[in-house]
Design a protein around this nucleic acid. Sequence first.
DNA 1: CCTACCGATCGGTAGG
DNA 2: CCTACCGATCGGTAGG
Lengths: 193, 193
Amino acid sequence: MEQPVTIGRKEQIMEVAQKLFKEKGYSGTSMRDIAEDLGIKVSSIYNHVQSKEEILKNICISMADAFFSSIDEIKDLGVFPGEKLHLAIESHISVITSNLEAAPVFLHEWKYLTEPELSEFKALRGNYEKIFRDIIQDGIAKQSFQEVDDRFLTMMIFSSMNWIYDWYKADGKMSPRDIAETLSEFILNGINK
Amino acid sequence: MEQPVTIGRKEQIMEVAQKLFKEKGYSGTSMRDIAEDLGIKVSSIYNHVQSKEEILKNICISMADAFFSSIDEIKDLGVFPGEKLHLAIESHISVITSNLEAAPVFLHEWKYLTEPELSEFKALRGNYEKIFRDIIQDGIAKQSFQEVDDRFLTMMIFSSMNWIYDWYKADGKMSPRDIAETLSEFILNGINK
DNA sequence: CCTACCGATCGGTAGG
DNA sequence: CCTACCGATCGGTAGG
């Protein structure tokens, strides 16, 4: 009601930044690039964000939140480990394919965060990865899964999931669910007893 | 005999650049960073390389060469598709783990190349990926492999292989060969008839 | 290999 | 939201 023109400006800045950080990287994107894309002057950006790094932090943390809120619905479910891993994979891929611009920033640009955000971010990511690893370890303990190297398997699953943004096309023949099903089936087929 | 002090200087520049490009990205690394690491002034670098981008180009192209010369020994072998895929995976992982600093530059920083090198690079990478895809398609045609989506499988294999630099430790419990064997076994187990 | 320097651009601020 | 500006740093060159 008060400033209809600038409502959502911060969100616009975040969206443009996601696109440019993905395309040119955090270091390769200037605040002037972001301003130009929005049709405003660079100094105006600072009415909405405090610094370039704050933009990066917002993108990384909100992606982390998206991953957590998605996995939280799954991690305490009383289902078999195979089904839980299946759901976790589907959940992760859904967040990736729903955030095709923020995902690569989350995956590659977080390293430009400085302390203390850098450590916070790493801790969040570690906690998240541990959820997957716990599912795998639980599956092995319950003899649902074969005796696999859980670190190797966790890394392989994340690698497969995290590279999807690179080749996924919204208009391709595989939907996010198709991809999740195919990957999940492939993985479970490899480890189920 | 003439300038013993500067012999190998270009190679030193490339090595330092690989390390810094991996750590801070191409855009985030300045020519002054590279010079400082070598204990020389930035202007001296230009006696050995023409530009910052030439350094990037050299790293990307020499990695591409390494991948090709490694796969070339395999691609025309008269072995079963499963064995050929196994050898190709081993070959690729060996190049990655032998070039832990150049590999991430090859994988992530190539996008900062400008034309015409950018198109050259993409073409090289496409040709290389096609070798893997051909092996998979051949395996399906010869009914060694199950009817899988070869694009999906190729991407999944590359994803798994290309993220290895991120978690592989030379002093870890898995050697490059262990990793290659485990991954290859997992993949083949999933597609062999 | 160095000193000295170039114009361009960087993230960010003052002040309105 | 803007104009005007800051000091720092960028890739790169001239000249020795």
